[in-house]
Design a protein around this nucleic acid. Sequence first.
DNA 1: GATCTTGACGATATTACTTCA
DNA 2: AATGAAGTAATATCGTCAAGA
Length: 281
Amino acid sequence: MELALSLGETPKAITFLDKSLKVDFGNDLGFCMTLGESGAEAKTKASDSDLHIQLDLTPFSPVPRSQTSLNKLHFSWITENLTGESGNVNKRSRWVEDSVAISSPNSIGSSFQMDFSIYGNGRVKREFEENFREQSTLNPKQKVALAKQLNLRPRQVEVWFQNRRARTKLKQTQVDCEYIKKCYETLTEENRRLQNELQELRALKTSQLLYMQLPATTLSMCPSCERVSTTATTAAAAAAYPTTACASAGGMTSSNMGLSLAEPKLFSFSPAQIHAQRAAS
DNA sequence: GATCTTGACGATATTACTTCA
DNA sequence: AATGAAGTAATATCGTCAAGA
């Protein structure tokens, strides 16, 4: 038994095979691995047609068609897997993918070459994007089908989905961070405003103690400008705000505002609340 | 030349399944 | 026959690199 390796541009004749056979890779670099029996061994066989196995790794060349006396390396489990009849698909699928990639004449790329035009191609990218929108993960069958449809290796489809998931997640994380940052800034500003308001109210309360005899007053906030003021509950209240700015919503009392004169409350939101808020906006 | 995008891959974790004592 | 440990394969995420735009 002999194992022959051939690498290069020139046509190679494998010594232990039919001397007339030339493996022609044309102008492209090629890699050919052949397993067969030596001449002496072959002579003892009635038929040697089953004894020579050749594996061609010529990523950019069509498979030579003139090799009638050779058996192309055939992986019986490939068809089993592709037709879904194999009892143990998972265990074999990685082998299958690689094997398909090696043996498929339509296989475009190889790991030696990174051709951005493959995925930059409009149709391929569109197909990927549409599939990804439907579901971000593919089962082995879908992966093989998509690869076949796009003339790519299943491994390439797999990698594309992996990268897409990772980068989508990264982008989403960045968006979430931005949103949370904005929430934080808004709440900080709101907190600052409320603290100022609280100080005003405390000052107001102190001053009111000096005028206990005066008629009862109501704390009112203008819904437009959000200024707080005290107004007498009498007819004077009606004149507290100019009609153009404040009449529509009416005044808001300290009680129905939910304000307390205690220490300002710190706001905190759960992620669910943040998401709900974002969805609403 | 710096930056961004994207295909590819290694390391690692998890899960499902098989084998074996 | 049931069971748990060990082994294996597939696949996910994460981090990173490298090449092209």
